[in-house]
């Protein structure tokens, strides 16, 4: 254990910053969270990457501003998808136009937020200080949303979206916890039980939590 701490100190001093180390140690935690939410609870998120990206993005943007950007991205995706539905064009052209919509709707929302008396930004997260990477990461959600919406019906897509955002928010909650950050850095061995937990989930055959609601009718009858 002592040796492990020595290695960690060396990594922090010589290889990467503590912030990057914390982020790296959190990747398996957030991925495990998505794994649990899929196979134990039954959440159908947009894959593993989307909720993970959201969790990290919300750390950059702050949760309230992050959720506002998420809402803007979804609304603009819906509008652009509905408008472009009838126009013949290549898939990537459609997605690009979608991003143009997102950019300007987002910009409009940011201006409105700044001018409005009900501004949601706080002292900690003024828009001017928000790293653009956070906004770009959230904007990427549009890609996942449109891809799903083309193949599935509206409600199914919205369900997946809500579940993705829920996992993103839980991930953000874990990520910004100072205690958990310190715990992970000081107890890197925790990733071994996490690995075992994922192996267990990989073998899990029982009903998912949502299945109990889905099949409630058979059970009652």
């Amino acid at each position: 254990m002592e040796e492990m701490n020595t290695i960690l100190v060396w990594i922090k001093d010589s290889v990467i910053t503590e912030e990057i180390l914390i982020f790296m140690l959190f990747i398996p935690i957030i991925a495990t969270l998505v794994n649990i939410s899929r196979y134990i609870i039954g959440f159908k998120t947009f894959g593993i990457y989307a909720p993970m990206t959201l969790a990290f993005a919300y750390v950059f943007t702050g949760i309230r501003f992050g959720l506002l950007v998420t809402a803007a991205v979804i609304i603009s995706s819906l509008i652009s998808y509905s408008l472009l539905k009838q126009i013949r064009m290549h898939y990537l052209s459609r997605i690009t136009i979608n991003y143009i919509f997102i950019t300007f709707i987002l910009l409009g929302m940011l201006i409105l937020n700044e001018l409005s008396p009900w501004s949601i930004t706080t002292d900690h997260h003024q828009i001017a200080t928000v790293p653009p990477l956070g906004i770009i990461l959230i904007a990427a959600l549009s890609d996942f949303f449109v891809k799903e919406y083309v193949k599935k019906d509206f409600l199914t897509t919205i369900r997946s979206l809500i579940e993705t955002v829920i996992i993103g928010v839980i991930g953000w909650f874990l990520l910004q916890s100072q205690n958990l950050q310190q715990f992970l850095v000081q107890n890197i061995w925790i990733h071994i039980p996490i690995l075992l937990l994922n192996l267990f989930i990989g073998q899990y055959k029982e009903l998912r939590f949502k299945d109990f609601f889905r099949f409630k009718k058979i059970s009652n009858d």
């Binding site: 196979y39 039954g42 073998q203 899990y204 055959k205 029982e206 009903l207 998912r208 299945d211 109990f212 099949f215 058979i218 059970s219």
Partner: peptide
């Protein structure tokens, strides 16, 4: 509280994927 015994006959997605 969910009585899991009532659901023992139901095939869920996890078991469908793993066992079948």
């Amino acid at each position: 509280m969910i009585n899991t015994n009532q659901y023992k006959t139901i095939l869920g997605l996890n078991r469908r994927n793993q066992e079948y």
